[in-house]
Nucleic acid binder design. Structure first.
Lengths: 118, 118
DNA sequence: AAAACATTTCGTATATTTGCGAAATAACAA
DNA sequence: TTGTTATTTCGCAAATATACGAAATGTTTT
């Protein structure tokens, strides 16, 4: 019959958050913001990241779009911080997704299929 | 001074795993393999996913490259299953990354900067 | 040997991502 | 008003990702 299912909301959300996390610059920003637990200026970030201002701005936009950060305008600065609500949601989604299964896996790794790229 | 740091191994690994998880098809496959705790044929997967065989093969290759699945050749089939070792590693990385910070965040959300895309 | 089967690779097309510098925006300072 | 500062948007180029069908691969069955 080949039902060709649509993806659940959960699957789509995990993919969406993962996309936001799929670049080292964005992981770095989130790690910093979540751990320091305070806000951060775009200008401070550009000092320590190997990208230009406009590129950083694009990454911040991406993170805003994903809902993982939010900004407070404080002219002429913009302070960024973690969006705690969605950060929690991401945490729950990933935790549940990556949870161990209850039972042990059956043996399934005698031949390790090559995994080269290209 | 602008040190332009290089990214830590941890940051790069999180970005790498996230990239593997950044497509609904791949999230679906991993969810299925990790929960059912057994192996799965490519032919079984293509029945329930809205992509063609060659596209599915690309996604499986991507997951193999990221180390999240492994395949056992069982001609003319290939059985896929979770790579438990790396799955555990991903779990640890994401859990630590998404962990709550110890203290409460300072208020930082009076103006919610618009987050439209394009 | 030839046919059947599951899967991958190849070639190609299109879309998205990433990056930069220049210009635009917006608020404040002189 | 003019200039300064912080940030974003625009326009563009290059790289990567996604998707498909056709052809190739490798194994088993006939």
């Amino acid at each position: 019959m080949s039902d060709k299912l649509e993806f659940t909301h959960e699957v789509q959300k995990i993919a969406g958050f993962s996309k936001a996390l799929s670049h080292p610059v964005r992981v770095y920003i989130l790690k910093k913001l979540s751990k320091m637990n305070t806000c951060c200026y775009s200008g401070d970030l550009v000092e320590e990241l190997p990208v230009g201002r406009s590129t950083l701005s694009q990454h911040l936009k991406e993170l805003k779009y994903a809902g993982l950060i939010q900004g407070e305008i404080n002219p002429p600065y913009i302070k960024y911080c973690i969006n705690r609500k969605n950060w929690e949601e991401a945490k729950k989604l990933f935790t549940s997704f990556l949870e161990d299964s209850e039972t042990e896996p059956e043996i399934c790794e005698i031949h390790d299929v090559s995994s080269h790229r290209k």
